[in-house]
């Protein structure tokens, strides 16, 4: 594909690199693929995704030990309360998450973790309190959220169409994001035949397909084996280092050392 270097360069500039530097990197990257006698699209994957990857890698090295400064606010909850009739599910929740940060929502079963995430996604309205949020958001529910009789590729097409992405680009983006989770979708297999863990990977990819700046994840690793679990957290850190914000509902306390904020909703309401 001949316009790969051009698209790569455009994306680098969009991600905030100096135009000259972006051009140099683009020429070099094309030459690197040439060393291997490979097509850049094949060798590095879709241009816009490799650009994000490269920028994230370079950003890590610039700040070496300490991470990138937290970016602009992506999500701000103030005094968010949710009542269903008499039952109070959430009371006065405050949370601010910036670009480049990961926030974990923890608490006992039934304490309103999923409700809070649905409020952040805009699927449920809070009873009181204010929510400020950037527009582009990706949501990964705990279960469901896929159509059993469609294949993974068809899901990429469908969710791509929802976001205004052309089918071919949606499919190649989906395949690449899947590969980051060590998953290669099989062409003709309906989703209902996939294992629970693989379906969760599809769920994650679908939440991320349209390149949102804020990711809302509801225990997205259920059914993952150990390797996939590590891939998942690595991916969370890649998102973070690329300046995105991540909010993840979890009950696994040993992961909390890797996150910036912990919101403990306490016991069941």
């Amino acid at each position: 594909m001949n316009d790969w270097p051009h698209r790569f360069e455009t994306e680098l500039v969009r991600l905030g690199l100096q135009p000259e530097r972006a051009h140099r990197l683009s020429v070099e990257t094309a030459a690197q693929a040439g060393e291997h006698a490979a097509d850049p699209d094949h060798f590095f994957g879709p241009a816009h995704l490799y650009a994000r990857h490269l920028v994230a890698e370079l950003r890590v090295s610039t700040f070496e030990e300490k991470r990138a400064e937290a970016g602009r606010v992506m999500l701000r909850l103030a005094g968010v309360t949710k009542r269903y009739r008499r039952r109070t599910v959430l009371a006065g929740v405050d949370l601010t998450v910036r670009g480049g940060e990961v926030a974990a929502i923890v608490g006992a079963n039934g304490c309103g973790k999923s409700t809070l995430l649905r409020i952040c996604a805009g699927l449920t309205a809070p009873t009181s309190g204010t929510v400020q949020r950037i527009r582009r958001v990706g949501f990964v529910p705990q279960d469901g959220g896929t159509a059993g009789w469609l294949t993974a590729d068809e899901h990429f097409t469908l969710f791509g169409a929802a976001a205004g992405i052309a089918p071919r680009k949606a499919r190649s983006t989906g395949a690449h994001l899947a590969s980051l989770l060590a998953w290669r979708p099989t062409a003709a297999q309906p989703v209902q035949e996939l294992s629970g863990g693989t379906r969760q990977k599809l769920n994650l990819v679908l939440g991320e397909l349209h390149g949102p700046d804020l990711l809302l994840l509801d225990e997205p690793y259920q059914g993952f084996d150990q390797g996939s679990y590590l891939d998942f957290w690595r991916q969370v850190h890649v998102w973070r280092d690329a300046g995105r914000a991540v909010v993840v509902v979890t009950h696994l306390l040993h992961e909390l050392q890797h996150v910036d904020h912990v919101l403990d909703l306490g016991g069941a309401a």
Partner: peptide
């Protein structure tokens, strides 16, 4: 994979 190698080289250069 190239997608791991070349960013690492750039990182060494940058550092």
């Amino acid at each position: 994979p190239g997608g791991t190698l070349y960013p690492a080289l750039l990182r060494l250069e940058q550092q």
